[in-house]
């Protein structure tokens, strides 16, 4: 009793191609994309340990460039400027973003949809246009370029991202939880601090970290709005490049990668703990 296949030879070939070639093509493309993303970073980190001044030829292992980074006063100052601006502008834009998101999700007012769309404008407008406009505006208002002007400009570009993140979370927040709190006798203030805010804290932290990251490596806005003595790190690195590339810049880059990884781990760690608990 022989069993004949219901498939023709052509069908069999097609199934084999789909299973063996197409099925492996997608992972292969993904792998290539990842390599393209990460190989330059790996090379950058590797050459930060290079003993010679070259960023192309490997000549030995050293930590010296990291020492150079910390010895460079100008670099330290730029790092400090960037950190202050990232922290303050992220704080301001998260506060504005969170409250705006809640207003859009929770309140009904005329022009709500228009406002929600308009808020995304800074994401799609060319940053250089906004930077020029802002500079002209500040000069007209006689504002000295410095911390204030840079914070304002960074808030402007990070608010849409903060709003989007908190808005998505606020929209999926069960409205009944706030009604339940009101039902149990809580006034608006108590509802916000005891129910809404604690439940929105994870997205608010995410919004803050994203805003801080965006501000930290912003270049275009800072070019226009930074003042004398308030050069942020990206501008400082750019001006160093003009004097020649040394592994010191690689070391600085490696440190920034490390910082970002630490932030990501800190955020992921919270989630990981929650997952492990379950």
């Amino acid at each position: 009793m022989s069993e004949t296949s219901v498939l023709t030879q052509g069908q069999k070939t097609r199934i084999w191609i789909e299973a063996n070639l197409l099925g492996r093509l997608a992972p292969a493309v993904t792998l290539l994309a990842y390599l393209f993303l990460f190989v330059p970073i790996v090379v950058l980190v590797a050459y930060s340990f290079n003993a010679s001044r070259s960023t192309v030829v490997w000549s030995g292992f050293t930590f010296d460039w990291y020492g150079e980074v910390f010895k460079d006063r100008g670099l330290r100052q730029a790092l400090q400027v960037s950190a202050i601006i990232a922290f303050v502008s992220a704080l301001v834009s998260t506060a504005i973003g969170a409250l705006t998101a809640l207003a859009i999700v929770r309140r009904r007012f005329p022009g709500r949809d228009a406002l929600a769309t308009l808020l995304l404008a800074p994401m799609v407008l060319p940053e250089i246009v906004m930077a020029v406009a802002l500079l002209v505006f500040m000069v007209a208002l006689n504002i000295t370029l410095g911390y204030f002007s840079m914070i304002v400009s960074h808030v402007l570009i990070t608010v849409p991202f903060a709003t989007l993140i908190v808005r998505a979370a606020a929209a999926s927040l069960d409205r009944r939880l706030e009604e339940a709190a009101a039902d149990l006798g809580a006034n608006e203030w108590q509802i916000f601090w005891r129910v809404t805010f604690p439940l929105l804290l994870p997205p608010i932290v995410t919004a803050f970290l994203l805003a801080a990251t965006l501000s930290f490596d912003n270049f275009v806005m800072s070019t226009f709005t930074s003042g004398v003595g308030t050069t942020p790190l990206p501008l400082r690195i750019y001006s160093m490049l003009k004097l020649g590339i040394t592994p010191k810049i690689n070391a600085l880059g490696a440190l920034m990668v490390l910082l970002n990884v630490l932030v990501v781990v800190a955020v992921m760690g919270r989630h990981l703990k929650l997952i492990l608990k379950k």
């Binding site: 069960d174 009944r176 939880l177 009604e179 339940a180 709190a181 129910v195 439940l199």
Partner: peptide
Amino acid sequence: FQSYALFP
């Protein structure tokens, strides 16, 4: 409430 609405 129908969905209980307990504070998570």
